[in-house]
Amino acid sequence: MSVKEENIPENEGRRDFLKQGTLFTALALTPVSLLKAADQKADEKFAELFEKVSLRIKVNGKAHELFVEPRVTLLDLLREQLALTGTKKGCDHGQCGACTVHIDGTRVNSCLQLAVMNEGKEITTIEGLANEDVLHPMQAAFIKHDGFQCGYCTPGQIMSAVACVREGHAGSKGEIREYMSGNICRCGAYPNIVDAIEEVHKSGVQV
């Protein structure tokens, strides 16, 4: 059975649609019980079954089996559903880098990813970069060089910085600046961030 787009009146909500639709008829619900179901928002619960898809995803080493709407971004999944608010929303358009996370080790703007695109993938956020109370060398270097002020872009800067070193793009200040330019810092901590990254790179420590 298929539901054709033209069956849905323009700008009408799902409740109206379900009340009129053939879908429920096929499920042998009488009109009375149908209306009652609509009143109790059963239609929404029912619709959820169609609207949400399953997602298996690993975040900071922890496996999650989720049921999410396909339109949910990875960023909003992390912040609003998994309470991992270390990853920040600065623009929602992939223009500022505040939401940078690692997906299977690669740095990605999580606002440009639908969560469901990450089936079976491993996500690392700022919360998963270090063990509890032991700072990652990049985090320690950011504190030492004062690579932030307000701190809002910082998780994205650090996730990007770690990737920048791993990629082999931290060979000089110029190279670091180029490969970090997707992460905006409005407080203007750039020189300090570059110093932090350069020091971590030069120390040769495993990041």
């Binding site: 608010t85 270390g86 970069l129 504190i143 701190g151």
Partner: peptide, 15 residues
């Protein structure tokens, strides 16, 4: 060092 540095580099600082 910033007294709130630890919170800011670990993502624990809550906005």
């Amino acid at each position: 060092d910033r007294v709130d540095g630890f919170d800011k580099v670990t993502g624990r600082a809550k906005y």
